[in-house]
């Protein structure tokens, strides 16, 4: 009886190990597929950084975005500022977009196929500042 239980335990353990190996095995091709997908698209943001005077302030930036895909299709550009697409294009493989934006958090831009929810590629516009909040609390009385 004890022998049987031990054997079941070993089988279960082996099954877990096999599942783990298979899971990892499937995981890697999935990751490499994502990398291939990213390589098929490019999303360039200019400038890469928006600099405000103080941490937490709204930063204003004239964003220029250009994207490229290997295949022609219908694409839409999204930002983290709004759920609605910034702009959509039909049957193209490149596009560009320019707009003045304001934010106090990093802005994430993503390219999607029209009508799809998954991002084909994303890129980020970083918010930066000269004086952080703690600095201001200490020095603002002299920053007249």
């Amino acid at each position: 009886m004890n022998y049987f239980i031990n054997q079941t335990f070993i089988y279960k353990l082996l099954a877990y190990i096999v599942l783990l190996i298979l899971g990892t095995g499937f995981g890697f091709p999935h990751l490499s597929f994502a990398k291939e997908l990213q390589a098929q698209y490019s999303l360039i943001i200019e400038p890469e950084q928006c600099v405000a005077m103080r941490q937490g302030q709204v930063c204003y930036v004239d964003v220029k975005i250009s994207w490229q895909a290997k295949q022609m299709n219908d694409y839409c550009l999204f930002s983290s500022l709004q759920p609605k697409a910034l702009q959509c294009w039909s049957n193209v493989s490149t596009g560009s977009f320019q707009q003045e934006m304001s934010a106090n958090k990093n802005l994430v831009f993503s390219l999607r196929k029209k009508g799809r929810l998954s991002d084909l590629i994303t890129n980020e516009l970083e918010m930066a500042w000269v004086y952080d909040k703690s600095t201001r609390k200490n020095v603002s009385w002299r920053m007249f």
């Binding site: 004086y131 703690s134 600095t135 609390k137 200490n138 020095v139």
Partner: peptide
Amino acid sequence: EPDQEDRNGGF
């Protein structure tokens, strides 16, 4: 309130 150590620093 931040204590004195939190106020350490400058520019």
